[in-house]
Design a protein around this nucleic acid. Structure first.
Lengths: 325, 325
DNA sequence: GGACGTATGTTAACCGGTTGACACAAGGGT
DNA sequence: ACCCTTGTGTCAACCGGTTAACATACGTCC
């Protein structure tokens, strides 16, 4: 790899001059500028960003911690975050926490060692206190940590409400909600609150299935749903916290010989790409993932630049009715 | 952020001593080591990896270029690559080329600027020559560049062969293959070669649909498949180059009133998580993505360490028959 | 002829680590 | 008494850039 010295030599100028060209500061004649660019071209020179980062105390790298990029929701999220970050000249280091608290903490330490300018947290296995200690700019998805840490979310309560109301309107008598662990106070838990509130208000029978903390696995979903629907065969409405869960639910219903939407109705969540590609297509609550990701990147950049930002950033959800209701 | 100087001061030793503790070199008494560790603990010190990278000329970061992480295949791939890389103490910078050649080239330049130790390329929009010029360790997925650049692939010809043979065995008379652009000489094109060979050998009528270079979009697949199946309604077997395409094909067939597998049989490719979650579940050719990713990381690490490695790394595929055949 | 703007070079410090050379001291072994 | 091992410190150079301070040189304008 050629260095700035090689460029200077080749162009017949000083290192300072090359640096001035590179950073557009001070006086540079058109002639010299051309010579320098040409030398860079010939050497295929690329400035060493590691050296620049060290000096500037800014790496232009952000960390993104997700449970697993293999999960369609987080895959799409990552894709958007990377896109919007790159537009603002930030690179993304990815971390798959696999919903493992120790791993998540290790990742955070790693990101600090690597001097990332900020972190977007979409995995939350740690207690609030752990995040509060962080001296870095942080933006979270779907979790309130403190009034210093902005979060991006969508209107979970409204989403849960619309989902359940739709199920009841379509005639469901006994409904169930499948969600992740309710132990950590995630904003997504508001979906469950809405589920409970609406069910009570309308006098519907309801029950809840919490998937375990450490399981993001389809097998687990399948087992839980199979158990649920065999133990309580009169359940005729399912509200699922992700489209992936809904996808599994479709499979399980088919295996149990339950027709959708005749015998059981489903509402998923997220509206990932897949939701419209399944058979039947999944009725779901759409989170504006594109906008949410853009906003997260925007907020993080503002924090990095020392600006203060709104802490709560809640975007509207939308009911997309398809074929499972 | 505390520096090594702060640690030295707090522990009452010299910077050199702290560095020796950090890197386990030279003589250090147990007593001093403890003092230093305690100081690091108290300050919550993390060594600045940017400074270390600069000195060592090694960033312990690798770049991963994929078309889009939102695509389930590449999402899973990325997840595995990140996992195996992290096990070997490498961090991953992600790049979504979106199958855009200019973007891909920009990403490569960016990765060089950032001094990544190597690149895993799973997106290939550029001509072979462009990759040959790279002075970095590179491992590719599914593409032969030169005998200097190792590649990881699965047995594409065999995969194509098994897929088509299955379709014909199940009684298909007119089959079609949907694949990406055949323009660039990707190893995945061997699937198409196998498709043609087997079809000719068995005297089956066949045709091909190439998706456009720049389209990774489901809409595009849908349009192409709809056109195909309406213009040639006697097609009764589809071989699709990814499970995502197969998923779209299921939707299209349903819209056109064609039953699967009675009227049309499908074979997908990859065996991503989704393939077994759809209704009907997709018969597919399984690529051992986990092993392939691990191998890619292993190879890259070997290259980084200056070892020489086998150029061709081909893993076996497996036919997973499910419900679409 | 002096002031000023433009253009470039020289030098040195700095970012936060790592490393080698060398000095020095304490303790043990012979 | 001397050598060796162990433990620690000081100092300086280095990685590849950036930047401030200062010097110098050429035009040009008044």
């Amino acid at each position: 790899m050629p260095t700035i010295r090689d460029v200077a030599e080749k162009a017949g100028v000083s290192v300072t001059t090359v640096s001035r060209v590179l950073n557009n500061r001070g006086y540079i004649s058109e002639h010299t500028r051309k010579k320098v660019y040409q030398a860079m071209e010939e050497l295929d020179y690329q400035p060493n960003e590691v050296a620049r980062s060290l000096f500037r105390k800014k790496s232009n790298i952000i960390g993104l911690i997700v449970p697993s990029i293999a999960h369609p929701f987080f895959g799409e999220l990552t894709s958007y975050v990377e896109y919007y970050a790159y537009c603002r000249d930030y690179k993304v280091l990815i971390c798959n926490s696999m919903l493992d608290a120790a791993k998540e903490q290790e990742y955070i330490a790693m990101l600090r060692r690597n001097q990332v300018d900020g972190i977007i947290m979409a995995s939350h296995t740690l207690e609030v206190e752990e995040y509060k200690k962080l001296d870095l700019p942080v933006v979270t998805f779907e979790r309130f940590i403190s009034d210093k840490i902005p979060y991006v979310t969508s209107d979970n309560y409204q989403g849960g409400k619309m989902a359940v109301e739709l199920l009841l309107e379509r005639g469901c008598k006994k409904i169930a909600h499948m969600c992740g662990s309710l132990h950590l106070d995630m904003l997504a838990n508001q979906r469950h609150q809405a589920f409970l509130d609406v069910a009570r208000e309308r006098g519907a029978v309801c029950c809840t299935v919490e998937t375990d903390m450490n399981a993001f696995e389809v097998d687990k979903y399948e087992r839980l749903l199979t158990d649920l629907l065999t133990e309580q065969p009169d359940i005729d409405g399912l509200f699922l916290n992700s489209d992936l869960m809904a996808l599994v639910a479709i499979t399980v219903c088919r295996k149990l010989g339950k027709r959708i939407p005749e015998d059981v109705k489903l509402v998923g969540y997220d509206d990932v790409l897949l939701a419209s590609l399944t058979s039947p297509q999944i009725t779901t609550i759409r989170q504006p993932l594109d906008k949410m990701s853009e906003l997260a990147v925007q907020l993080l950049e503002s924090l990095i630049q020392g600006e203060s930002v709104k802490v709560e950033n809640c975007l509207p959800v939308e009911l997309i009715e398809r074929e499972t209701t």
